[in-house]
């Protein structure tokens, strides 16, 4: 059964709150990790509700509202969220208070807001939506897991549509910890990032449709040749002409991972247009949601921003966008979208 992306919303380190523009200007990295380009929250959320929300909840709600408004969908059949870290700021606040006050005098707000499913619940409360609501916390597969749930439920005819999102936030403390790991080390390491991307998926195509979701596959610690084999299989199944395809790869500056992307580029995608996104979003558990947003935009606008181009020529007609994301060499995801 076909599944269409009919609405998108992204709050990220870039100016992405408006779907009318597409990365025309680039916010460069300042500091040790990518910070969010904050939207005017009060235009989207009532001040009374806003005061208890941490930034990640605000960004999640704003991006969800943008996606819903974009699609015209008012009450989705399912709200599915994915996050690696959840509400990191409030979790830190709650744990710090617990430590400083010797497990007493704990305030309720940061506890209530610190759970990973706070965002899914807040979106549902805001909409008055009592439908299926699920949050996936599966490290580098978190967004993909939410997406997979939507695919299974739509294909199983349990639902007609779903609001699916991936969100994560980075904090000063967490980034300090990351910098002690090889993956994020300052020399040849990834730069941490954050963002929140939401998508309205529906069975029906409409005039606002961005793309069709053709395939989603995830692999945990695959054998060396497995990814190439799987990519070839997907391309064959969906009859993809690689010269009419833009390939979004999660290049992140880590040499070992870079080699994996390069291998695929130099074999399967030799005549494709290769593009990147982590130079704009940074590395985080749900960065594939940034890629999903960019892929939707590329297909609808039939253009690729210069800041994303790595090599090759942009096809005159972009029929497919293939996303290959990997996280810490363990989690690999392959997503195919079609015009």
């Amino acid at each position: 059964m076909a599944i269409y992306i009919n609405g998108i919303g992204l709050i990220s380190p870039q100016e992405t709150k408006s779907n009318a523009s597409f990365l025309e200007e680039v916010n460069v990295l300042e500091g040790d990790y990518f910070k969010i380009a904050e939207p005017p929250y009060k235009e989207y959320i009532a001040p009374r509700e806003l005061r208890r929300m941490s930034r990640v909840i605000r960004n999640g709600i704003v991006s969800a509202k943008i996606a819903l408004n974009d699609s015209g969908l008012e009450n989705p059949d399912a709200i599915l969220t994915g996050t690696g870290l959840g509400c990191a700021t409030d979790t830190e606040k709650f744990l710090m208070a617990m430590s400083e006050n010797k497990e007493s005098l704990l305030t309720p707000t940061s506890f209530i807001q610190s759970t990973h499913n706070t965002l899914g619940g807040s979106i549902a409360i805001g909409l008055g939506c009592h439908n299926y609501n699920m949050t996936y916390v599966n490290r580098g597969f978190s967004f993909e897991s939410a997406l997979l749930d939507a695919i299974l439920m739509i294909n199983g005819q349990e639902i007609e549509n779903a609001l699916v999102g991936g969100f994560d936030e980075m904090t000063e403390n967490h980034n300090k910890l990351l910098l002690t790991q090889k993956h994020y080390a300052k020399e040849n390491g990834a730069v941490a990032g954050q963002g929140s991307g939401f998508f309205a998926l529906e069975k029906q195509i409409n005039e606002n449709t961005y793309a069709e979701l053709k395939e989603l596959e995830t692999y945990f610690k695959p054998e060396d040749s497995a990814i190439e084999e799987k990519v070839l299989q997907i391309l064959k199944t969906h009859d993809v002409n690689t010269s009419e395809c833009v390939v979004l790869m999660g290049f992140n500056g880590v040499p070992v991972e870079q080699n994996k992307y390069n291998e695929l580029r130099d074999s399967v995608f030799l005549n494709s247009c290769i593009a990147q996104y982590k130079n704009l979003s940074g590395e985080y558990y749900t960065s594939s949601a940034f890629a999903f947003w960019a892929a939707s935009q590329i297909l609808k606008k039939q253009s690729l921003p210069e800041c994303m181009l790595v090599s090759g020529n942009v096809p005159s007609t972009i029929k497919h966008v293939f996303i290959y994301n990997q996280f810490l060499k363990n989690e690999h995801s392959l997503i195919l979208l079609a015009k």
Partner: peptide, 13 residues
């Protein structure tokens, strides 16, 4: 009511 709990903690802390 959540604010009430915050105020109780504020008084004690």
């Amino acid at each position: 009511s959540i604010d009430a709990l915050e105020l109780i903690v504020l008084l004690e802390k």
